[in-house]
Amino acid sequence: MDNSIYALIVLSLCLGAGCWLVFLWAVRKGEFDDMERPKHRMLDDDDEEGR
């Protein structure tokens, strides 16, 4: 019983760390630099190759 709780705690910390790493990657790549444009981008139904 106790062991499974510890295992779950470690698992949740690992999951959290994973999300955190993805977040760090996104900040570094500049995903949060322009918060306005993406919401309009999806409306650009265009013949051009997907961007």
Binding site: D33, D34, M35, E36, R37, H40, L43, D46
Partner: peptide, 27 residues
């Protein structure tokens, strides 16, 4: 407005030799 960003991105991207254009809406 968003249409200005759209227009500029499309028109610049169609120039020969241009491989990528990104216009930041906020700035």
């Amino acid at each position: 407005c968003a249409a200005c960003v759209w227009l500029n991105e499309r028109m610049i991207a169609r120039l020969p030799g241009v491989s990528d254009v990104r216009v930041n809406y906020a700035t």
